[in-house]
């Protein structure tokens, strides 16, 4: 847009030119900010103040009810020296995130590619893959609990037909997390699938036409055209899935309550319990800000690295 404006004004004299450019630029700025004004107003009106309060709260001893007491950085130092759950839940969350994101996006991509083909009955399959994503988490927890029963559950039944003696799953300290990851991948796949499906529909045809003329095989087209064109959507998925997988605990909670031991306790649930079960709202705010710093750093890195692999037309 700016390019166009500038080429059009180039013909006139220099003095007018600078003034025009400045005016045009001011207009551009105004237009841009007008377009984003609703969301800016929203964030300022509904989030800034509460966020400021929570920053302040992280420096206090506060239970949400009586007056907060300023304690400086005590909450932060306590986390690293005095709270065995801080590190453990943090590690669990990293484990959960690193395992579930590639699986969700990877399988989501496969399903999106399968569902993008115009074959008979594709609408049914698409809906089937999406269905778990829309189902109530409590119901899902219950259903899978029953599937994971060690003695007469469906999973171990299938395994025993393959001659494998299945583990205790949800009550085993080493298998509970894989089980939880499996269910959350199963449940969450609808999201990347739909995003990628939408991305696939938006791809311009020209590339494929010329590739076909060049005689590129199907997988080559996938590798050299489809996947590169989808990279903006992959970036979106990586960043948003990373942010949200650090904040999800509903499904985990209904399946294991964080157990056995603290094998599946996640960081966000720890924050939640500190704030609302133990009444340590100040401490919980401090934990939330540590989380913020970590995710923000990773997000920033992803953003900076996008130049290396994200392809915009």
């Amino acid at each position: 847009m700016s390019m166009a404006t500038i080429t059009m004004t180039r013909r006139t004299s220099d003095a007018v030119n600078t003034a025009d450019v400045r005016r045009a630029r001011r207009k551009q700025n105004l237009t841009g900010w007008l377009f984003i004004s609703p969301i800016v107003v929203g964030v300022v009106a509904f989030q800034f103040f509460p966020i400021l309060v929570s920053i302040a709260a992280s420096l206090t001893d506060w239970n949400g009810i009586s007056a907060p007491k300023f304690v400086g950085l005590k909450n932060f130092s306590e986390m690293f020296t005095d709270d065995p759950l801080f590190l453990q839940t943090f590690k669990n969350t990293v484990y959960f995130t690193l395992a579930s994101i590639p699986l969700t996006i990877g399988i989501g991509l496969v399903l999106a590619l399968l569902c993008a083909r115009p074959i008979r009955g594709v609408a049914f399959f698409r809906t089937a893959y999406f269905a778990p994503y829309v189902t109530n988490v409590v119901a899902i927890g219950f259903v899978w609990f029953w599937f994971f029963q060690p003695d007469n559950g469906v999973i171990n039944g299938l395994l025993s037909q393959l001659g494998i003696n299945g583990p205790q799953w949800l009550s085993s300290s080493s298998w509970a997390m894989p089980a939880v990851i499996m269910v959350s991948v199963w449940q969450g796949i609808g999201y990347p699938m739909i995003i990628l499906l939408a991305g696939l529909q938006g791809l311009p045809n020209e590339f494929y036409e010329s590739a076909k003329i060049d005689g590129a095989a199907a997988w080559q087209r996938l590798r050299f055209i489809t996947l590169p064109l989808l990279t903006p959507h992959f970036l979106f998925l990586l960043i948003t899935q990373f942010i949200s997988s650090f904040q999800v605990f509903g499904l985990i909670y209904v399946m294991t309550k964080g157990g056995p031991g603290h094998a599946t306790s996640v960081y966000i649930y720890n924050i939640y319990q500190n704030a609302f079960s133990y009444g340590k709202v100040g401490y919980a705010s401090a934990m939330a800000w540590i989380l913020f710093v970590v995710i923000a750093a990773v997000t920033f890195l992803q953003w900076k690295l996008q130049k290396r692999w994200v392809f915009y037309t």
Binding site: G32, F35, I51, I243, A275, V281
Partner: peptide, 30 residues
């Protein structure tokens, strides 16, 4: 995505940052 204006990229980063803070951290003030 398509317009150029001053502060665009910073505004976007700030927006993205607000989504990183877990909502329960500021439930009570909200």
């Amino acid at each position: 995505a398509r317009l150029r204006f001053a502060g665009r990229d910073i505004a976007f980063m700030v927006l993205l940052a607000t989504s990183i803070i877990p909502g329960i951290a500021y439930l009570i003030p909200q």
